[in-house]
Computed example of a mutant assay.
Amino acid sequence: MATSRGRHKNDQQAAEQAQQAGKLNKIALSSASANSPGELSMHYLLSYQLADDYLARRGEFRSSHLALAWRAVEQGELVLGGAVGDPVESALLLFNVDDMAKVEAFAKADPYVTAGLVQSYRILPWHTVAGESAATPVR
């Protein structure tokens, strides 16, 4: 027969396991595409190599670039984005989408790219395995 202390410990362990399972389910759901229920998303990094005169020229295009970025956020595709370095040398944008073509479409529509403030860009699949927002959590 289990003691009340043993039952309490088992109940606490069961509650912790249920809470952990709930967190994993929440992560899996947050990784699913908003447009395709049940279809899993993948993280992609959009890496911009910036032109030497980027800082001098970005003011003219910044509001339209940011409008595009915030639309992607509202659509659940862009997670984070911003300039890298001090002084700025590049930019990174983190996407969580079900198709890399969506990242490519973003880059091709970005005023920074079309105006030549971005010399080149790369789209890199990022196989995230750790963290609350990992696309494929592995423990």
Rank of each mutant, 00 (worst) to 15 (best):
Q19Y: 10
E104Y: 04
V113Y: 10
E16Y: 01
A2L: 11
A2S: 03
D98F: 09
S33L: 14
L68S: 05
F61K: 10
Q49W: 00
Q20I: 04
L80Y: 05
G38E: 11
W70E: 15
L93Y: 15
H127N: 12
G116A: 02
V79R: 10
H43N: 09
S33D: 08
V129I: 13
H127T: 02
E132W: 00
R62Q: 07
L78Q: 02
Y112T: 01
Q75D: 02
G85F: 08
M100G: 04
S64A: 13
N25R: 11
A67L: 12
A51H: 01
T136E: 07
A115P: 12
F106G: 14
S4T: 12
T128M: 10
L124P: 00
E77I: 00
A2R: 09
F61S: 04
H43R: 12
A18K: 14
D52P: 12
Q13E: 12
P125A: 08
R122T: 15
S90M: 07
L92Y: 07
Q49M: 03
R58K: 01
I123D: 07
S120F: 03
A32C: 13
H65D: 10
A134D: 03
E89M: 07
L94N: 04
R5V: 14
A34Y: 05
H127Y: 08
A135W: 06
G76M: 03
I123W: 08
T136H: 13
S63Y: 00
K108W: 00
A115K: 05
V88E: 05
W126R: 01
V97T: 09
G38M: 11
D98I: 07
A107R: 08
E104S: 06
V73Y: 02
Q49N: 07
A14V: 06
Q20R: 13
T3L: 10
G82Q: 11
R71Q: 14
L124F: 11
R122H: 14
M42G: 11
E89C: 07
A21M: 02
D99Q: 06
M100E: 09
E39R: 15
V79Y: 06
K9H: 07
R139I: 14
G82C: 13
A134C: 12
V138R: 14
E60L: 05
K108S: 03
R7H: 13
N35F: 15
S33T: 10
A14K: 12
E39D: 12
K26R: 13
E60Y: 04
E74Q: 10
L92C: 03
A130G: 04
L80W: 01
Y48D: 06
W70A: 10
S47D: 09
G82E: 03
A18M: 10
G81E: 05
R57E: 05
Q119S: 04
V103Y: 13
R71H: 06
A67R: 11
R71P: 01
A115C: 07
L40W: 07
V113E: 06
S133P: 00
Y54N: 08
F95R: 11
G6P: 04
Q12M: 14
L78N: 02
D110I: 00
G6M: 14
E16F: 08
S31L: 13
V113A: 04
N96C: 06
P87Y: 09
L78A: 08
R62V: 02
P137E: 03
R7N: 10
H65G: 11
A115R: 05
I123S: 11
A51F: 04
V129K: 13
H127L: 06
R122S: 14
D53S: 11
A56V: 13
Y121D: 00
L29G: 07
K9Q: 08
K108I: 03
A69P: 05
